[in-house]
Nucleic acid binder design. Structure first.
Lengths: 150, 150
DNA sequence: GTATTCTCTATCTCAAAAGTTGACAATGGG
DNA sequence: CCCATTGTCAACTTTTGAGATAGAGAATAC
């Protein structure tokens, strides 16, 4: 699962992408329309601006905007920045590899072999989706099937 | 990321799959070879046996074995049982759908639309991989590239 | 009956996630 | 120059859930 912070970051960035080229967007504007605790959002936006994908200006009429055109920011980038990795296990991360604790030898680990495949499939998708993409929300009904017994 | 518990469950099930048809496997056998804290493993195996995918017998020569042939257990099943969902956000789960906290209306949420696609891709992969599959571990070197700057 | 092995509920510990506080710095307008 | 506005940053608190353990109990084999 993505952390709440990562989800906030994604929505904030989508908001900034929607308003790209419209000058600085104040934090409270993002916080209110995106339903994100304002103070917490400052932490998130500061983090993103340290990576250069968000720019900011202080003072009157200040605010935030994308430091990079929306077409150059993929959802894969965003998740990696916030979470460090797209992988489901630390040892299957391409850019933030770590050995898993209490595991078997990595060279013998079948779980890892599987999770590398999952990571690649996920990365293929997310690295092809950009903040500039027009995305049609899916009606809420979809995804509401009954719980399967297994 | 998968929880440690889910990873333990996967390795334990692989272990049982390897020894399928060889009678009850004692917990300590699994715990030792798979490097899983024994007491914690009891919790995991009890949970799995409540779902029927693991069977057990108490007393001398007791132990655990797969309640279902390894070809009938997919990795997707396993992860759903342990974690409830393959999705990256609660609202994108097919079998354990929940609305996300502090989010926008689900029908307007673009993040959800994306994550539904990711869930489907992940499910396609994991539901096609079975405990009976022969899986070749990937040498540890792969996945050790330098960290990208973004 | 005794050693073995699983069962179950309760509990503990601890790190990370989520969120807040408050002092500070830049900017623009009067 | 002063003041309102808006971002910056480090420290801190709170909450949550994961991970792990404890311990009494029940089945089974010998």
């Amino acid at each position: 699962m993505l952390s709440q912070k990562t989800r906030y970051a994604i929505r904030a960035m989508q908001h900034l992408a929607d308003k790209y080229g419209q000058g600085p967007i104040p934090l409270t504007d993002i916080a209110e329309t995106q339903n994100i605790p304002a103070k917490f959002l400052t932490v998130i936006l500061s983090e993103l601006s340290r990576y250069g994908i968000v720019a900011s200006q202080r003072g009157k009429d200040g605010g935030y905007w994308l430091g990079v055109p929306p077409i150059d920011i993929t959802y894969g980038d965003l998740i990696r920045v916030m979470r460090g990795s797209l992988a489901l296990v630390p040892c299957a991360s391409r850019f933030a590899h770590e050995t898993c604790k209490n595991c078997v030898e990595e060279k013998d680990c079948r779980t890892r072999a599987l999770m590398l495949q999952v990571r690649d499939a996920t990365a293929n998708l997310l690295d092809g989706m950009r903040l500039s993409d027009r995305i049609d929300p899916v009606p809420a009904a979809e995804g509401l099937e009954a719980v399967e017994d297994l």
